[in-house]
């Protein structure tokens, strides 16, 4: 304690008194209770420093996020109009300027087909993910024997969650677009995004299923329920909030992914929303279009890209809000 050169007056006093008894403990005088905690002042100071560091770490993240958001919002201010949401994109920068809307020969520029394309994409991905992800999780958690093979599969699923998204894009290109002849279609994009988020969804769903207390399963089996009845009536209802939250959060990651849909060949400058009756038709998606705009040399396109980012972020935040609502709704029930 005497090595502390930066001590205050109180601490110096402590140092003097502490020579008599327990040097670092609660009873420096050796004769009673240390009322003001002077002997542990340094421990308190360490705690304060640690608190400060943790707070700083939190603030770095928040400040950076706020700065980015503010920058995007400022860039997009005045460019995000109703027309932007309802018209197809244009190659001509002037078409996006709201003050020009009145005297355009071709109509304003926007991102309508991409918004619709992204929504279709995410709905299809959600359907595929729901069945494949939850199905795999139920199998692994409820049915699969606790063997080394099961553990090997589980370890590999966890590893797959860390594979870069562009690798999934390449896989989608090779398997769906080329081998399965889907073309650069919505279905190829949705399947690729499904593969991308499947590991996360499986792991998250497994954790939700594991969180269902075993006493619930035993209670169900004890009343003569079969395994399927137990899973359907007891396990799944308990696990659904966690599973749904996991799926929605994964989907909001998928909707912003650019690399995989770039690899499977999503179109830029699509003028119509994807045609659902033509499963191999081409499609556009928001991140793809934003990327395209950001590459353009004209200064106007930076504002257009920012407006696109705001639309994407809004959809993303809405999805996260739904996830939170679902979680809260089911949490209250029990």
């Amino acid at each position: 304690m005497s090595t502390n050169t930066d001590t205050s007056t109180t601490t110096t006093t402590t140092t003097t008194t502490s020579t008599g008894g327990d040097p670092d403990g609660f009873d420096p005088d050796g004769n009673g209770f240390d009322f003001d905690g002077s002997s542990i002042k340094r421990k308190h100071q360490l705690g304060t420093i640690f608190l400060g560091l943790c707070f700083a770490a939190t603030m770095v993240g928040i400040v950076a996020l706020v700065a980015l958001l503010a920058d995007v919002l400022l860039e997009a201010r005045g460019w995000l109009t109703w027309e932007f949401l309802t018209y197809p994109p244009s190659q001509i920068a002037e078409n996006y300027v709201p003050s020009n809307y009145g005297d355009l020969a071709t109509g304003p520029g926007g991102m309508y087909p991409m918004i619709i394309g992204s929504i279709y994409l995410i709905i299809m991905t959600a359907i595929f993910t729901l069945f494949l992800g939850v199905g795999a999780a139920i199998y692994l958690e409820e049915y699969a024997p606790d063997s080394s093979l099961t553990r090997f599969i589980e370890a590999n699923i966890a590893n797959l969650a860390g594979v870069p998204s562009i690798v999934y894009g390449l896989l989608g290109l090779a398997v769906f677009v080329r081998a399965m002849q889907t073309g650069a279609s919505l279905i190829a994009g949705a399947l690729t995004l499904t593969l991308l988020i499947l590991p996360i969804v499986i792991v998250q769903s497994q954790e939700s299923l594991r969180a269902v207390p075993d006493s619930m399963r035993q209670a169900s089996y004890g009343t003569g329920a079969t395994k399927w009845q137990t899973i359907r009536n007891v396990v799944l209802p308990e696990a659904v909030p966690g599973i749904m939250t996991g799926i929605i959060l994964s989907l909001s990651r998928a909707i912003g992914e650019t690399a995989p849909i770039l690899m499977v060949g999503a179109a830029t400058t699509m003028f119509t929303p994807p045609d659902l009756t033509d499963p191999t038709g081409s499609f556009g998606a928001m991140p793809m279009q934003i990327y395209e705009w950001a590459k353009m040399p004209e200064a106007e396109f930076q504002h257009v890209a920012a407006a696109g980012i705001v639309v994407l972020l809004t959809i993303l935040l809405l999805m996260n809000a739904v996830a939170i609502l679902i979680r809260n709704k089911y949490d209250k029930r029990s």
Partner: peptide, 16 residues
């Protein structure tokens, strides 16, 4: 078998 032989557990475990 369990439909013939019911069970009550140590910790009360009603369903939610």
């Amino acid at each position: 078998l369990r439909r013939k032989i019911g069970m009550v557990f140590q910790k009360p475990n009603p369903f939610p």
